[in-house]
Amino acid sequence: MANYSIKDLEHLSGIKAHTLRIWEQRYNLINPKRTETNIRFYDQDDLKLILNVSLLKDNGIKISKIAEMTREQLNEAIINISDNSTNFADQIYALTLCMIDLDEQRFEKIINSNTLKHGFERTMMNLVIPFLSKIGVMWLTDAINPAQEHFISHLVRQKIMVAIDGQQTNVDSSAKKYMLFLPEGELHELILLFANYLIKSRGGRVIYLGQTLPIDDLKMAHEIYEPEYLITVLTGKPLNSTPTEYIEELSNLFPDSEILVSGRQVVGQDLQLPDNVTSLASLNDLITFVEENSTITTP
């Protein structure tokens, strides 16, 4: 089980370390453990408690009242907020707790209720994608283990696949063609998979080639499909090359296609991109690009 410093708790909950220390002393809210060398640390139960406290506090409940709650009362209050709140920030906290507890039933309820209220696309853009970004931070700080990350990724992937399966298939034959793929060795496909949904919902024709695609296989598919646009996401470094080298290789291999790239290795990295390569900083940038190049009116 992961261990956290008080700075980790601050970073993950948004509550200042100074405030957490005051709550420890005044309300005995959490009790730090100590290593054999007398270094203070907190465990996953402490993280979950602080996330709960943060959510309740953001919804107007005083810390003095929270400190008096039993664990059962605390859980009941959290469920009540997540069931009734229309605030996406509250829902992100609730999903985080679902991940920590591996609670699939609760996850399904939150996603399904938001989809009914807001529609699938808005739920993804305002709830699920920010939640995945938070998971990324927690992963980098060892706040979650691989099982928890895989659990959530699998559930989100299921939701996107169901939404894609429900899309209309009678696409205009004159619509622009997109080919979506990830570099060889790249496995993080949720953003690319949702991009598939976004493009199809705006009338684009999509070939989805998925994870870890060797460059020779990409060349073969490109020759057959002849897409106007290639889209890829570089979360990690491409196999056997730098991001710049990989992008230049794509540019040279496919000079007649416009190549759209995104991901941590691209966005904010100040890369010098070839003329036929465009960086997408966000999914909103992708939506704008697709709508500007669409042959149909956005529904």
Rank of each mutant, 00 (worst) to 15 (best):
T37I: 13
K117I: 08
H11G: 02
F120G: 05
Q25S: 15
M179Q: 15
N170S: 15
G119M: 06
S279Q: 15
I152V: 12
I22C: 01
L95N: 03
P32H: 03
I152F: 00
P255F: 03
S82V: 13
D83H: 08
T297Y: 05
S64Q: 13
I6W: 02
L280W: 02
S241G: 03
H11K: 14
S279I: 06
K219L: 14
I224E: 12
H150K: 09
H222G: 06
K219Q: 15
N276Y: 09
V267D: 03
A17V: 01
H18G: 03
I66V: 10
D275Y: 11
N196S: 11
K109E: 07
Y246Q: 02
F254G: 02
A147Y: 11
N145T: 09
P32L: 01
N3W: 08
D103P: 08
L271C: 00
H18M: 05
R205H: 13
I111N: 10
S153F: 09
K62A: 13
S85I: 09
G185P: 12
W139I: 06
V290C: 09
Y208N: 10
A147L: 10
R26V: 02
P146H: 05
L74K: 00
E228R: 05
D83Y: 05
N112Q: 08
S5C: 00
E36H: 12
S174Q: 14
T235V: 14
L182Y: 12
Q265A: 03
I81G: 04
M179K: 05
L9Q: 02
E189G: 09
I164W: 13
D270A: 10
L271P: 00
T115H: 00
L213E: 09
D83Q: 11
S294K: 02
P238F: 05
A221W: 10
N112S: 12
D216R: 11
S113A: 04
I207Q: 14
D172H: 11
L55E: 00
E186L: 10
L9R: 01
G210W: 08
K62H: 11
L283R: 07
A163Q: 11
G268Q: 00
I111F: 09
S13Q: 03
N84V: 08
L273Q: 02
S133C: 09
Y27R: 06
L283A: 07
V206D: 09
K65A: 14
V156F: 07
M69Q: 06
L56Q: 04
E248R: 11
D45I: 03
K65G: 03
G210D: 06
I81F: 06
Y225S: 11
P227L: 08
P183C: 12
I152A: 01
Y4M: 04
E184F: 12
D83N: 14
